[in-house]
Write a protein that binds this DNA or RNA. Structure first.
Lengths: 229, 229
DNA sequence: CCCTTTCTTAACGCGGCTTTCACACGCGTT
DNA sequence: AACGCGTGTGAAAGCCGCGTTAAGAAAGGG
């Protein structure tokens, strides 16, 4: 199940931008335009993370933090145009998990969101967790379990690490050297044969038709790429 | 008891600055000048938070994050001169809790440290509860008593300690290093043999069929996991 | 001080994982 | 056509991690 984000933001332009960003990442999300609605939706939907703008019209975003913290430890990442130190300190001390000032980089925002959600997982034993899905394949990154159409698939340590690295760069090409370095260490960046063997093994275990891979594709002369729909 | 901070930083000037800052806040702290020493001290002292500089002389600070995350969830706040986006993303994805780029404001750094430590607190909440149950096994965390189907089972100190750590992370994988660090201390994180012996003993005492464990499962190449129904 | 319990260390078998090799295939070049 | 190159595949061999047992050392209690 993909993480569900609640966006609390009144500026239509920023909202559109966040919407596009989260959509591209595959997150599910809902939007609230006011502080009151933000609190209500946070209570109703139990999102995996709240993206909160501090400059809301009907009251300070600080109230949203205080209100939510009264009954939940859900991750709250503040996104604000105001970069003043005292705003940051107040928001963080009231219980926000992170504070990203505009203008911010998309990659950093997403990384900070991932970090906040990762931390929240252990204590909330109920929540499904940060699973990664592509096609009928589901990877439970916390539990280290891979399921294909619901059935558990056993991966060896190296196979799993290889898949992990590919997931980290999902959609993008990962060079052979990079894969070898991450999985086998810097001493083995020349052993491209390892990759051929293990990519084949992964395909046999994950792909419906290993000879015509749908997800784990070869980039000849460069590396491999994990296709996510 | 005041929080204890571990500073991992080679630059004497920044170290002096951090020292003065933390002292003024009333934090206790220790210092490590290299990555290796930082890892060792993190294991030995169990600080409440690690302040980590990424630009260390004897290897990347990234290794420190990866190493510590192998056996502990302690808060790690990166303090770095490098403010590049990819550094931030990499550090956060490897398990850092926050990333503060120099030049930073003192107040913000302290607020982010407080936020990171506040989040870490609830983790200790498991042992405070009442009895822990899984299957026909019941663990009285107060009385340090284990019963299986009503009958008392005697566990040695190390056996109980090992079970305790697994219960604290029930359902999740606990790495070998983490278990070794929690039960035998930071000096013995390489003695995986201890684990094999004691896991076998625990299984013989707790599992109905020790050869096919239902609760105390092995995660090959990683660690062990306590399955709770 | 002796006896019991617990911890540490070593040895060994087993199974599975990793590594390595051999070879087939597609493709572009000679 | 033949060759080189990068890639995919199957299988064999060796290694390594894990589980198990046992014996000696250390610790603790009478």
């Amino acid at each position: 199940m993909k993480p569900q984000i609640l966006i609390v933001e009144d500026d239509p332009q920023i909202r559109r931008f966040l919407r596009a960003t989260l959509e591209a990442e595959g997150y599910r999300f809902h939007e609230a335009l006011t502080a009151a609605e933000g609190i209500a939706q946070a209570a109703a939907r139990h999102p995996d993370l709240v993206l909160l703008d501090l400059g809301l019209p009907d009251g300070s975003g600080m109230d949203v933090i205080r209100e939510i913290r009264g009954w939940s430890q859900m991750p709250i990442v503040v996104v604000s145009a105001r970069g003043q130190e005292r705003d940051k300190i107040e928001a963080l001390d009231r219980g926000a998990d992170d504070y990203v000032a505009k203008p911010f980089s998309v990659g950093e925002l997403l990384a900070r969101m991932r970090a906040a959600m990762r931390r929240a997982l252990p204590q909330a034993g109920v929540s499904a967790g940060e699973n990664f899905r592509f096609g009928e394949i589901e990877v439970d990154l916390q539990g280290r379990v891979v399921r294909i159409a619901g059935n558990d698939v056993h991966l060896t340590p190296n196979e799993y690490r290889l898949l992990q690295v590919l997931i980290q760069h999902a959609g993008k090409v990962v060079t052979q050297r990079q894969l070898l370095n991450e999985v086998w260490g810097p001493q083995h960046t020349e052993q491209a044969q390892y990759l051929r063997v293990y990519v084949a093994q992964l395909r046999r275990k994950l792909e419906r038709d290993p000879a015509r891979p749908k997800h784990l594709q070869t980039e000849p002369g460069v590396g491999y790429r994990l296709i996510v729909d």
